[in-house]
Amino acid sequence: MVDVQFRFRDDDAVNDPAVTVSAFTEQSNATAVRVEPGDDARELLPSLDRLALVEVAFPNWTDGRGYSSARILREAGYTGELRATGDLVIDMLHHMRRCGFDAFAPEKPLNPDDAKVAFERWENVYQATAVDGRQPIWAKRHPA
């Protein structure tokens, strides 16, 4: 397993071994699952309450399916650790946070200074993703 380099959670790290989505839906005692780009994250929705860790794999960072998987899980109320793993790049970290990822396990460790800048770079955002708790620009323009 690749080490978690950045984590934005206060609870204890989850180190349960992750199983595939098909293994997870067939066995009832697993608490960690690994979602590959071609997996349908919606298959996990009936059993979100027993999950402590979802690893979303990025074999290649230019395959963006994992972004949708992350948002779908968060939109459905998943509150456990959502970990991006694999070919992660500095410049996408912020956007991954916005999609609900709160742990990052890059295959090759990233420069921590560059990563810190990237996580904090965007003070404002245009969209409401409904999963990162950030107020979009339009909401700031029109306070309720």
């Binding site: 960072w61 963006g64 972004y67 956007h95 999609c99 245009y126 969209q127 993703t129 339009w138």
Partner: peptide, 13 residues
């Protein structure tokens, strides 16, 4: 334009 600029889910379609 604003919705699609830096849309976090849709940058690597």
């Amino acid at each position: 334009r604003q919705w699609s600029s830096f849309h976090p889910e849709f940058l690597v379609l």
